[in-house]
Amino acid sequence: MAKYLLLKHYRGAPAPVNDVPMDRWTPEEVAAHVQYMVDFAARLEGSGEFVDSQGLSPEGAFVRYGGEGRPPVVDGPFAETKDLIAGWMVIDVESRERAYELAAELSAAPGAGGRPIHEWLEVRPFLAVHSTVFD
C-alpha cells in the first residue's frame, strides 16, 4: 500500500470544465457538493483506503524566522497570484492507478447545475517513512 495526497486548490490549478465559482451556485447545489465529499470519504473508509481529510481557510500568511531575538517576519495576506490550497484528502491504496481512479471520482463532485465540476486535483505520492533493505 502507498499513501497519496489528493490536493484541492482554490487557485493555481488549471481551470475546471464546469468553472462557476461556488458563491454563484444555489444553496442546494452547495449542499449536494458537500454531501458528495462526505459520502466519498465514508465510502473510502468502508473500503479501508481512507487516512485523512481536511479543509483549509483561504486566509493565511507567509512566515519566516526573523533572526536571533527578533519576532517572526510575516508577509501576507497571500498575493492574488499565489497558488492557494483549499484542502486535501490522504488515501492509502494498492497502486498509483487506484489513486488516479479515486482522484477522478472526487473530481466528479457536482457543482453548478448539479453537473460534475471536473476539477483538477493534484495527486502526490508520500515518501515512505522506512527504507526497505537494499544492501
Binding site: E45, G48, D92
Partner: peptide, 15 residues
C-alpha cells in the same frame, strides 16, 4: 503500525 486510522484498518480486516 501502518499509519492509518483505526476504523479504516477495521474495515480492511472485515472486508
Amino acid at each position: 503500525a501502518y499509519l492509518v486510522p483505526e476504523p479504516t484498518m477495521a474495515q480492511r480486516i472485515s472486508r
